[in-house]
Amino acid sequence: TQVHVDGVTYTFSNPEEAKKFADEMAKRKGGTWEIKDGHIHVE
């Protein structure tokens, strides 16, 4: 599962880990995350 944050791609083999990471990054940025085309995007 790929997580895209500010133009950087992080790859996780476990989708649950990817979601936890996205959640943390979104909180830090004061933003949100969503799943697009099977990838997670942090806004």
Rank of each mutant, 00 (worst) to 15 (best):
Q2N: 12
D23Q: 11
Q2S: 10
S13G: 11
V8Y: 13
T1P: 05
H4Q: 05
E16Y: 09
K19A: 12
D6K: 06
D6A: 07
D23F: 06
T11K: 09
W33R: 00
K19Q: 11
E17K: 09
K19H: 10
E17P: 03
G31A: 06
W33G: 03
E34H: 14
G38M: 04
M25W: 12
G30V: 02
D37W: 04
A26P: 01
V42F: 10
N14C: 13
V8A: 11
R28D: 14
R28L: 15
E17W: 07
S13F: 11
V8F: 12
H39F: 06
V42G: 02
K19N: 05
P15E: 14
K20D: 12
K19Y: 15
E24Q: 07
K36T: 06
V42C: 03
G7Y: 06
T11V: 13
Q2E: 10
K19I: 15
G7Q: 07
E34S: 11
K29W: 15
K27F: 14
M25N: 06
H41M: 09
D37R: 01
S13Q: 12
E17V: 10
M25G: 02
R28Q: 15
H41A: 05
A22V: 01
D37V: 03
A26Y: 03
V8Q: 12
E16A: 10
V8G: 07
H4I: 09
A26W: 02
V3T: 00
H4Y: 11
T9S: 10
G38A: 04
V5P: 00
H41Y: 15
H41F: 15
V8T: 11
G7N: 10
D37I: 02
W33Y: 07
E43S: 15
A26R: 02
E17G: 06
D6Q: 06
T11F: 14
A22D: 01
W33C: 05
F21Y: 06
I35T: 06
T32L: 07
T32V: 10
K20R: 12
I35M: 14
A26K: 02
F12D: 00
H4M: 07
G38R: 02
W33T: 06
I35S: 05
V8L: 13
H41L: 09
P15L: 15
F21W: 08
V42Q: 01
V42K: 02
E34V: 15
P15V: 14
M25F: 06
F12H: 01
F21G: 00
T1S: 06
G31V: 05
R28N: 15
T9H: 07
S13P: 11
Y10R: 03
E43K: 14
A18Q: 00
R28I: 15
D23C: 10
R28Y: 14
G7D: 09
H39N: 08
H4T: 09
G38Q: 04
G7M: 06
E34C: 11
A26Q: 03
F12E: 00
D23E: 13
K19S: 09
F21E: 01
Q2L: 13
E43A: 13
T9Y: 09
K36F: 08
T9Q: 09
E43Q: 14
H39S: 10
A18M: 01
R28F: 14
K19W: 12
G31I: 03
K29I: 15
T32H: 13
T1E: 04
G7E: 07
K29L: 15
H4K: 06
D37Y: 05
I35L: 13
D23P: 00
D23V: 11
E34A: 11
E34P: 02
E24M: 08
Y10I: 06
K20I: 12
G38K: 04
K36C: 09
A26S: 06
I40G: 01
E17I: 10
E34F: 14
K20F: 10
D23T: 12
G30H: 07
P15W: 15
K27G: 11
Q2F: 14
I35H: 07
T9G: 04
F21N: 00
N14T: 12
G30W: 03
I35W: 15
H41I: 13
A26V: 15
N14H: 10
M25Q: 13
H39G: 07
S13D: 13
V8N: 11
Y10L: 04
E16R: 08
K20C: 09
V3L: 02
V3S: 00
K27D: 14
D37K: 03
T1K: 04
H39K: 08
D6R: 04
K27N: 14
T9D: 05
T11N: 11
A22Y: 02
W33I: 11
V42T: 02
D23W: 06
I40R: 00
I40L: 06
D23L: 06
K19C: 10
I40N: 01
G31Y: 08
E16K: 08
R28S: 15
I40P: 02
E24L: 09
E24K: 08
E34N: 10
G30K: 06
V3W: 01
V42L: 08
T1L: 10
R28T: 14
P15I: 15
S13T: 12
H4R: 07
I40A: 02
V3F: 01
V8W: 11
A26T: 09
G7H: 07
D37L: 04
E43T: 15
H4V: 08
F12S: 00
H39Y: 07
E24D: 11
G31F: 05
D37F: 05
V5Q: 01
W33E: 03
F21P: 00
K20W: 09
H4A: 04
E17Y: 08
R28E: 15
K36N: 06
T11Q: 10
V3E: 00
N14K: 08
F21L: 02
I40C: 04
I35F: 13
T1W: 13
I40F: 13
E34I: 14
H4E: 05
N14E: 11
T9I: 15
K36D: 04
T32N: 08
A18I: 00
K29D: 13
K29N: 15
D6N: 06
Q2P: 08
G38F: 04
A26C: 06
K20S: 12
V42P: 02
T9K: 09
A22K: 01
V5G: 03
Y10M: 04
A18T: 01
G30L: 04
Y10T: 05
E16F: 09
A18C: 03
T9W: 10
F21M: 03
K29A: 14
K27R: 13
A26E: 04
R28K: 15
T11G: 07
G38Y: 03
T32Y: 14
V3M: 01
K19F: 15
S13K: 11
A18P: 00
H39L: 09
V42Y: 05
T9P: 04
A26D: 03
A22G: 03
V3C: 02
A26G: 03
K29V: 15
E34L: 13
E17Q: 10
I40M: 04
G7S: 08
E43L: 15
D6S: 08
G38L: 04
V8R: 11
H4G: 02
Y10P: 00
S13C: 09
R28A: 15
S13H: 11
I40Y: 14
A18R: 00
Y10N: 01
F12M: 01
T9R: 08
T11A: 09
E24Y: 11
P15Y: 15
V5K: 01
H41S: 06
E24C: 12
H39E: 11
F21S: 00
H4D: 05
E43V: 15
D6I: 03
T11R: 09
I40K: 01
Q2R: 11
G30C: 09
H41T: 10
K29Q: 13
H41W: 15
G30E: 08
E17R: 07
F12T: 00
K29C: 11
D37H: 05
H41R: 07
S13A: 13
A22R: 01
W33A: 05
A18N: 00
K20G: 10
I40H: 02
K36W: 07
E34D: 08
K29R: 08
K36S: 06
P15A: 12
K36I: 14
A18E: 00
M25V: 14
I35N: 05
Q2T: 11
W33D: 03
V3I: 02
H41G: 03
D6M: 06
F12A: 00
S13Y: 12
S13E: 13
W33L: 08
K27A: 14
D23Y: 07
M25R: 04
E17N: 09
A18S: 03
K36Y: 08
G31L: 05
D23A: 10
A22F: 01
G38W: 02
V42W: 04
M25H: 07
E34T: 14
N14Q: 09
E16P: 04
H4S: 07
D37N: 10
A18L: 01
R28M: 15
T1H: 08
S13N: 11
Q2H: 13
A22H: 01
F12V: 01
Y10G: 00
E16L: 09
T11C: 11
T1D: 03
V5L: 08
H4W: 10
G7V: 03
G7K: 07
T1I: 13
A22N: 01
P15S: 12
N14I: 08
V8P: 00
W33F: 05
D23S: 10
K27Q: 14
K27S: 11
N14M: 08
A26F: 02
G31Q: 03
N14A: 09
T1V: 13
G7A: 06
T11W: 14
